[in-house]
Amino acid sequence: MQSSYPDIPAGLVAHDLTDAAVELRVDPAIYPLQAVYGAAYIFIDRCYVFLDRPAADALRVTLTAKSGQADVGALRALIGEFANELISCAWRHQITQDNRVLLETVTLQAIAGAMGPPSLDDLASFDFSDQGFDDPLGIAMSWEEKHGKKPPPATTSEPTGDTTGDTTGNPTSGHGVEEPTP
């Protein structure tokens, strides 16, 4: 990254015309990580987004034009819009926490009001085999089963080993990332 913009405080934004990239330094004390994720996700269809931590007390968002080319003005506009989205996400994150009960109540009422009670047809097609008798709260379990020694938690899967060439996976999450066509 080579230069910054004169209308933005020093050290916050820099761009690199060679890579068609622009980066924004984010103070996590101001912008919670969930807000950074929210803003970043909204931009992955229009540019490449990369997050890292250049220092313990800082986050960095790097946006790269998918075309591989962008002028100074385009990069300034891109990071400006990202900054607007970021502040919107940060505030929404706070509002959602403040108004959680109200939002959940209205949503529940709206969906429940629209769905109504299940009909006999709905019940006829309901799968009672296992799922209906799951006991997520452990109500039917004995005290010993519920509070006895628990097995060690399953380890989270982590990236390990090498993967080369010939395996193909299917993107099932469908968030619209283009596959490269090398």
Partner: peptide, 14 residues
């Protein structure tokens, strides 16, 4: 990495 495996060579470490 699995999704893009067909298009490149990848070595993963931590």
């Amino acid at each position: 990495v699995k999704v893009f495996a067909a298009h490149g060579e990848f070595h993963m470490s931590e």
